[in-house]
Design a protein around this nucleic acid. Structure first.
Lengths: 155, 155
DNA sequence: CTAATACTTGACTAAAAAGTCATGTTTTCG
DNA sequence: CGAAAACATGACTTTTTAGTCAAGTATTAG
């Protein structure tokens, strides 16, 4: 259970766009150099987010990428879904069938309860956090997230 | 952000041990056939959990694997750590440095706040759930987890 | 003491994810 | 109209993760 490379780098690229002038857009090269990534890789990440409708591009000399929506209207969940996927219980059950066609625990699976509980909580978090919330100094952002989502997983 | 195959299958194998007679232990072959996995793969998963000290084995004709601790004393976090790792913020920052030696956001990273918040919540969940909690019918387990962890990520 | 059961290990292969490359298209500046 | 800037894309290579294999060692029943 980890944050994947695509999720991490894709989010960073999107955040660059969110912080750039919304009128002019940002060229791939510029994003790549700001993040220390190869332009080819940044293209690929932007492509994924473009397919998901989060960004669009303008070709030609003064081209570049821009957000299609405001940073207040793009959730962390939107971004992660574009780049890989949020964990979903169905996916786990469908993919992890071992050597058989169906999972042996199909009808009654206690592990499913655990993943569902976890998965739903992670999903809720990701839908409540917006790109706009992630702009600013680290401390400020941390406070903002904690204020928004009080006592996550309270005991 | 997903549950990995190793985490899923490893947990299933451990749960088989938790449900088996603690005196006699369970042979690899038996676990494999109950879960629809290859014996070779089950060996590998058990090896990982053995290294983490969660289980131990007895060789010979009446051998097999057993838990070293009671199911009430093994957390979901213990299992996931043995099989892959819980997401940790340091790991993300160390591994995702792009083409550079250090991450460009080293000194001040707002994304780190988001991953830290999420990561800590997931970690708390995993430490609060024990293998013993996962034994029983799906509905029962679901209720148990929800009762234990009220309104996770409350709005 | 030997055959059968069962764990042990390191090296191997296969599949998926991450990241790159080459080639092409669009737009604008001079 | 070129040349340059910048996006577009499919195929490719590399790396990581998943899963298998072969050749062991330990234990016990007979």
């Amino acid at each position: 259970m980890k944050i994947t490379a695509q999720e991490e780098y894709g989010l960073r690229c999107l955040l660059q766009l969110a912080q750039a002038d919304p009128e002019s857009g940002l060229p791939v090269k510029e994003i790549a150099s700001r993040e220390g990534l190869s332009p080819a890789y940044v293209e690929k990440l932007l492509r994924l987010m473009g397919k998901a409708g989060l960004i669009h591009s303008i070709r030609g000399v003064h081209g570049g990428y821009r957000l299609t929506r405001k940073p207040t209207e793009i959730s962390l969940g939107d971004v992660v879904r574009a780049l890989s996927s949020l964990p979903s219980t169905e996916e786990i059950c469908d993919r992890h069938t071992g050597n058989l066609e169906h999972c042996v625990h199909m009808s009654d699976c206690s592990i499913r309860s655990a993943w569902t509980t976890l998965t739903e909580a992670v999903g809720r978090f990701m839908e409540q956090v917006f790109i706009a919330d992630l702009i600013g100094p680290e401390r400020t952002v941390a406070k903002r997230l904690h204020a928004r989502i009080e006592t996550p997983f309270q005991v």
